[in-house]
Amino acid sequence: MKKILLIAMLVVAVGTAKAQEFKPFQLYVGVGYTIPEGGGGVLFDVEPAYRLNDAIALGLRWETALMGRVVGDTEASIAGTSSYTVNGKYYFSNNKFRPYVGAGLGLFGLASVSVGQDAAGAAAETKFGFYPRIGFDLGHFNINIDYNIIGASEAQGFDSNGEETTFDVKNSYIGIRIGGFFFGGRK
Score class of each variant (00 low, 15 high):
K3G: 09
I7Q: 10
L10S: 09
V11E: 01
V11I: 15
A13F: 14
A13K: 05
Q20D: 11
V29C: 06
G32D: 04
G32I: 02
G32R: 03
Y33F: 13
G39Q: 01
G40W: 07
V42R: 08
D45C: 07
V46F: 06
V46E: 01
V46L: 13
P48F: 09
A49M: 12
R51N: 10
R51G: 13
A57L: 10
G59K: 10
G59V: 14
R61H: 11
A65P: 03
G72V: 01
I78K: 15
S82L: 03
S83T: 08
S83H: 00
Y84W: 14
Y84H: 11
T85S: 11
V86N: 00
N87Y: 13
Y91F: 15
Y91H: 12
S93E: 12
K96H: 13
K96S: 14
R98F: 07
Y100Q: 03
G102Y: 05
A103M: 12
G104L: 01
L105M: 14
L105T: 11
G106A: 10
L107K: 04
G109F: 11
S114Y: 14
V115Q: 11
V115M: 11
G116Q: 02
E125G: 05
K127M: 06
F128V: 13
G129C: 05
F130V: 12
F136I: 07
L138A: 08
H140F: 08
N142Q: 15
I143D: 01
I143T: 08
I149N: 04
I149H: 04
I150H: 04
G151L: 03
S160W: 05
S160R: 13
E164W: 08
T166R: 06
T166I: 06
D168S: 09
D168I: 00
I174M: 02
I174R: 00
I176K: 09
I178S: 00
F181H: 15
